[in-house]
Design a protein around this nucleic acid. Structure first.
Lengths: 158, 158
DNA sequence: ATAATATTTGTATAAATATACAAGACGAAT
DNA sequence: ATTCGTCTTGTATATTTATACAAATATTAT
């Protein structure tokens, strides 16, 4: 058909610009633009375009173009007053990622909490290893950081 | 549960090494390895791991690991990834020795792999501590470094 | 033009995947 | 031990996606 390529391009544009979670959703968006088709055809189109469906940040799922990765829009750090990036737990320790250059100042703040839970910290440039005292659990540490470290939020925890 | 991290890593290994077209297929492979689970749990695991399903070359579909995309590799990156001396494994972690002053640039490159396997790194002047995520084996780490770090060679491994 | 061939599509359905809900498992606090 | 809260899992099912088949549409050759 004549409009097939137009349709394929419209699909790519939509996927690029909006978070789309299902073919039904995409289908209705396409119909809004005047493309009449069925879910079956859309499924084939997506296969043709090699569009992948991937889990979104612990929420739902989104479709993504795969042939060319989108460059990530700049990491907006204005809101990050303290420079936290994430915290992860492994080998009984906590690994905190920070914005480049922020590790030492945050580690300094951690040390000055003088908390029982934290035995010590080691900071690189953007990573802090937090060594908890024996018997301290992940939950203990999270509670501590949440209550005493301003700007620390639960969503960061893996 | 205790074996969950091991299961997650097993899933990543399988997806990395084999073309897997459906959860049922992956499920039976996991069962071959002694992991007992249902499709529902596998679906949740794949979501947790942010595994994407994408069309393969006009044939079927395959599952793929989706690491955060690196900014384009430059000559600068190539330069940063020299200066390995050795890598050693102890206490479930990897200790990488580098030429004096090279630790930070290499650790920076390691961090920017955004790999699931590496929970975090800490660099001194000529030593990097690599903390793997729970369930990650020495082999997983070696495979990762070999495949994604230009200049890393197997002969360095103790 | 017609016929032969290939491509695209819809319908109906099969196949695959996600999730609500309840139950179980684990850890922490009492 | 008991309770509370959190995390993980299975069952059953809803939702979502892929495809067999036939029909329609386009393409090519004659």
């Amino acid at each position: 058909m004549n409009g097939r390529n137009e349709r394929l391009m419209a699909i790519r544009r939509l996927i690029n610009s909006i978070n789309i979670s299902s073919q039904e959703k995409l289908l209705s968006l396409l119909e809004d633009q005047g493309f009449a088709m069925t879910q079956a055809t859309l499924s084939r189109d997506l296969k043709h375009l090699r569009v992948a469906k991937m889990p979104d940040n612990n929420k739902g799922y989104i479709y993504m173009l795969t042939e060319k990765q989108l460059s990530e829009p700049t990491e907006n750090d204005e809101i990050q007053i303290t420079g936290f990036v994430s915290i992860d737990f492994a080998q009984g320790m906590a690994i905190m990622k920070t914005m480049p250059g922020h590790a030492n100042s945050i580690a300094y703040a951690l040390d000055n909490l003088n908390s029982y839970e934290i035995s010590g910290t080691i900071a690189g440039d953007d990573t802090i290893l937090i060594i908890p005292r024996d018997g301290v659990t992940k939950g203990d540490l999270v509670r501590l950081l949440k209550s005493r470290l301003p700007g620390f939020s639960r969503e960061l925890i893996n």
